[in-house]
């Protein structure tokens, strides 16, 4: 929060409480684990998480690296933003791509969104965690995003195969977290568990946290498919016969792989306008992600298999 002299303050605001809770979680992880890492997805939640990490350990830089699982299909602006953000935070950045998937030519178009996500995101993530022997990984997931996330602990235990057993989670009382794992096992730590989407935006606004420009409205080339606006970020997006990209004033509520992330038409070009727009929105943010649409339990299934 701002350096307001808290001389007479007796109560913390909602955002101050959330901030303190997240910092507490991050410090616990840094202190208890041998080799933690922060999953950095470049989205707004990751931006908030990174900002909180800077606060948690200041004046030290956060004592762990950032890990980005690069599917090779991220928006170009995301990649540029990522490299700058890691540099600003004085943190090492590990970029991992499932090379086997690349060799096998796995793309959202050839393998379908579900298999693609599985191979290029979930498998790649598991591969990276195993390769670097991380025993804890921060994720920016929030409980308000989705029903199975709403059930997840802040310190969420993962087996050697990175699997989640939702029916058998460790009890978690107060802010006392059980960080004990055996070799090969790990903990996914979720410092933003109790934040809502509105909290995230308010905090970005209040703290002036940099976010990828794709969140702001601009004229961008898009094609419309099944009612979803897909941005043509590079020449790899296969166009159907007769399909021509058109420039529309769009922005993104959520960022992922560009062929799988739907844009929304919006004139909101500033943070206050975005937050304002969000407040009157009538669809939840994950609806912009094509991968969640299959069925209600799809996120839980992916999480059991090791997805964040």
């Amino acid at each position: 929060m701002s350096a307001s002299p808290a001389t007479q303050t007796r109560e913390l605001t909602h955002l101050q409480r959330l901030e303190a809770e997240s910092i507490h979680i991050m410090r616990e992880v840094a202190a208890e684990f041998r080799n933690p890492v922060m999953l950095y997805s470049i989205g707004k939640d990751s931006s908030v998480m990174l900002h909180l990490a800077k606060k948690a350990f200041y004046p030290s830089p956060p004592p762990f690296p950032l890990l980005h699982v690069d599917t090779t299909w991220k928006f170009r602006e995301m990649i540029a933003f990522r490299d700058q953000a890691a540099k600003d935070a004085r943190m090492d950045l590990i970029v991992h791509t499932n090379q086997e998937g690349v060799r096998d030519g796995v793309t959202p178009f050839t393998h379908g969104s579900s298999a693609y996500t599985n191979i290029m995101k979930t498998d790649a993530l598991k591969e990276a965690l195993t390769k670097y022997r991380f025993d804890a990984a921060f994720g920016g997931a929030r409980r308000d995003e989705e029903k199975s996330r709403a059930k997840e602990r802040i310190f969420s235990f993962r087996t050697e195969n990175h699997g989640w057993d939702p029916k058998n989670q460790r009890p978690e009382l107060w802010n006392v977290y059980n960080a004990r794992v055996r070799k090969g096992e790990s903990i996914r730590a979720f410092p933003l568990s109790n934040w809502t989407e509105l909290d995230i935006w308010q905090y970005i606004l209040k703290e002036a946290i940099p976010i990828v420009p794709l969140y702001f409205a601009a004229k961008r080339p898009v094609v419309e498919r099944d009612g979803m606006l897909i941005m043509v970020d590079d020449e790899r997006l296969p166009l159907a016969p007769g399909e021509t990209p058109e420039m529309r004033l769009i922005r993104f509520r959520t960022l992922g792989c560009y062929p799988l992330t739907a844009a929304m038409e919006s004139p909101a070009a500033t943070l206050p306008e975005i937050v304002h727009e969000m407040l009157i929105a009538r669809t939840s943010e994950r609806s912009g992600r094509l991968i969640d649409h299959d069925e209600a339990g799809s996120m839980e299934k992916k999480k059991r298999e090791g997805y964040f």
Binding site: R143, E146, K147, A150, K151, P166, K167, Q169, E300
Partner: peptide, 28 residues
């Protein structure tokens, strides 16, 4: 709305604690 796990939905029971968020004009 709140029973988020498949086993819960199938069995119609709540197994684990689920967290939900809402706000009114006065409080979160």
């Amino acid at each position: 709305l709140v029973d988020g796990l498949e086993a819960e939905r199938e069995q119609g029971i709540t197994i684990d604690v689920a967290y939900r968020f809402f706000a009114t004009e006065k409080r979160k």
